[in-house]
Amino acid sequence: MYELVVKDIKKTFTLSKKQQKIEKTDQKRKVAVDKLSFTAHPGEIYGLLGPNGAGKTTALRCISTLIKPDEGDININGLSVKHDSLEIRKHIAFLTSELKLDDFFTPNYLFRYFSNLHGLDEATMHERKAKLFNRFGIEKFQEVKVGDLSTGMKQKLSIAIALVHDPAIIIFDEPTNGLDILTARSVINYLLEMKTEGKTIIISTHILDVVEKLCDKVGIIIDGTLQVDGTLSSIKTNSKDGTLETLFFDLMEEKVGEDHA
C-alpha cells in the first residue's frame, strides 16, 4: 500500500519564441505549477481537475519522474522523486495519450518487452498477460501490429502494457480523452476495480462528469495553483448550490475573470 505525498512542488519552464507567441506573452519563463501540495491514499482515486493549461499534466509528469520539480518534492512510501526516481518507477504506472507504442510491434511482443524491462519472470509475465489481455479483450489481436489497431484498441493495449508490473500507484492523464463511449466506460470501470484492489490512483481531467463518477478526492487547479483540495462530498458543501460545476465555474471566475470561465 503506497501513499503519495506531493509537497509544495514548483515547476517553471522556459518558453521558446514560438511558445511565447502561442501564450501571447513576452515573458521568457512560465510557472506551470506553484506550491502544489496534496496527498493520495491507497484505495482512493484522487482527481486533479482544471482547465487546459492549468498545470495538471506537468504535475503528473513530476509524479511519474519524467520531469523533476524545481522546488518541493514528491514522496512515495518515503522515496523521493528527486533522488530515488529509478526505485519509484518500479511502483508506478503513468498513462497518457502522449506515451505511444511503436506501430511496428505486436501486443505480445510489447508485453514481453516491457515485462522484461520490469524484470518479471516468465511465469508472472504469462499470468499478468492472460489477466490483462482478457480484461481488455486484447487476445483476439495479440499478434496484430499496433499500427493496424483502432484507436480504442491502442488505448486499451497502452493500459495493459502500462500495468505489466502490477503497480501500486496508477497515474492517468486525461483517462477518457479521445476515447469512444465504450472504451471510456471500460477504462472507468477498470480504474474503479483497481481502487477496490487498494491501488493509489491519481487522474487529471477537465471533465466534471469524470470526477463525479470516479473520484474520492478532488483538487481543483487553476493557473498552476491548487484552489481547493478535499473529498468530493466535502468540497461540494462549499458550492452555492451543492454541485461541483457551480463551484468550479465560480472559482474560475474569481481567479481569471468571467471571460475565461
Binding site: 511519474s64 519522474t65 519524467l66 529509478l86 526505485e87 518507477r89 518500479k90 508506478i92 503513468f94 502522449e98 506515451l99 505511444k100 507504442l101 511503436d102 506501430d103 516491457f114 524491462l117 520490469h118 524484470g119 502494457i161
Partner: peptide, 17 residues
C-alpha cells in the same frame, strides 16, 4: 524517431537506467 513518435517516454517511465 522514438522522440518524434512519442515512444521514448513510454520507455523512460520504466525502471530502466
Amino acid at each position: 524517431g522514438e522522440k518524434e513518435r512519442g515512444t521514448i517516454a513510454t520507455l523512460l517511465v520504466r525502471p530502466v537506467k
